[in-house]
Computed example of a mutant assay.
Amino acid sequence: MNMTLFPDVVVNGETISSAAVAAEAQNHTGPRDKPGIAWRKAAQALAIRALLLQEAKRRGLSPDPLELGPNRFETEDEALIRALLDEALAIAPVTEAAVRAEWEKAPDRYRSAPLWDVSHILCACDPRDEAGRAQAEARARALLARLDGDAKGFAAAARESDCGSKAAGGHLGQLGPGDTVPEFEAALRTLAEGAITPAPVLSRHGWHIIRLNAIAPGQVLPYHAVRSRIAQALEKAAWASASRDFVETLARGARITGASLAPI
């Protein structure tokens, strides 16, 4: 990206260089044909960060970095921003009535995990090996073409699988969320009962042909089982809203060039 096309960001006289924005832009997404969107997101993020740090220093706050994990601590800037938000934001406690009202909007949103009864055929390869990956894919596509959607022939075709499940006709049993690799699960979620993936699915194990034999949808959970989850979500939403309002208040009294705080 040509940084000369984008100005430095200046927040209340503090300059954030184009190089700093370019480095931050790598943490933001945007369409490949519109690199300026990632740049604008990065400029906005750094402008907000500068506003918050300036306000924290104006209030005379001192950083007290927390330990986030083994040998992992907040940076001083992160600690300052946390201290500022803790001081500046007054979040009303979430009431029981609010939690119950949120639940009553659509109780069937809150379900136990589904169970999928699954079979598959694996054409194993190391995805990093280009030649091996192509060879395994060709084999998987040939098996899939031979099946031609015939679920009854799946168990017979599974004898050619590279997975130990071939002894059971490719049957993996019942799986829940998180029981398999993400690519496999993502494909499962697109299938109707009795359907086979229309194309092989690549994972770190190789190419899979997947059949969803049956699905048991998760059961609707009672209020008491989901109350804490709903309360946490409401608290998080309230915190996010109050944070946005606080930043907007700071921005109204600030002089900012080279960045916009409007939604992107």
Rank of each mutant, 00 (worst) to 15 (best):
A225S: 12
V226M: 06
L234F: 05
R244N: 09
G153V: 06
E104A: 13
A157P: 04
E76A: 12
R109H: 10
C123E: 11
D162Q: 02
R49Y: 06
P222I: 07
K41T: 09
R72C: 13
E96A: 12
E235L: 14
A134E: 12
N12W: 05
A42S: 07
P127N: 08
T257L: 01
L221I: 03
A225E: 15
L66D: 13
I210E: 00
A242L: 09
F6I: 00
A106G: 01
V99C: 00
F184H: 14
A42E: 09
A157L: 13
D33A: 12
G30L: 11
A106C: 06
H171E: 13
V99K: 05
F6K: 07
Q44K: 11
A238I: 02
P114M: 05
L250E: 10
A145R: 06
L122D: 05
P70L: 14
L144Q: 05
L85Q: 11
F184Y: 12
L147M: 07
G194Y: 02
G194H: 02
A167F: 10
Q219R: 15
A156E: 11
D33I: 13
S119R: 14
A140Y: 05
E14V: 05
R128G: 01
F6E: 14
A225V: 07
K105F: 01
P65I: 08
E193P: 04
E248L: 08
P114E: 04
R40W: 03
A136S: 08
E160N: 01
N27E: 13
L175D: 02
H171L: 11
S62M: 11
S243V: 11
G69N: 11
D126G: 06
E102A: 14
A238P: 08
P182S: 10
K57W: 08
A138K: 12
A97T: 13
F73L: 14
L52S: 05
T190A: 09
E78I: 03
V220Y: 07
L115D: 04
I264D: 02
I264W: 00
R204F: 00
P107D: 06
L46R: 12
K41D: 02
A242S: 07
A155Y: 08
A45T: 10
L202E: 05
A20Q: 14
V94D: 02
R100S: 02
L84R: 02
A216M: 11
T257C: 01
E183N: 10
P65T: 07
G206N: 01
L212G: 00
I121F: 09
G153I: 04
L221N: 05
S241N: 06
M1V: 14
A101R: 14
R58K: 14
E137Y: 12
R59V: 07
D150M: 04
L80H: 09
H208T: 06
K41V: 08
G253N: 09
L84F: 09
G194Q: 09
E160R: 02
S243G: 11
R255P: 00
L80W: 11
S228T: 15
L202P: 04
S260Q: 09
D33M: 13
I209N: 01
G132S: 08
Q174K: 13
Y223G: 00
N71P: 00
L144Y: 03
Q54G: 13
R49F: 04
P200W: 06
G164K: 00
I81C: 01
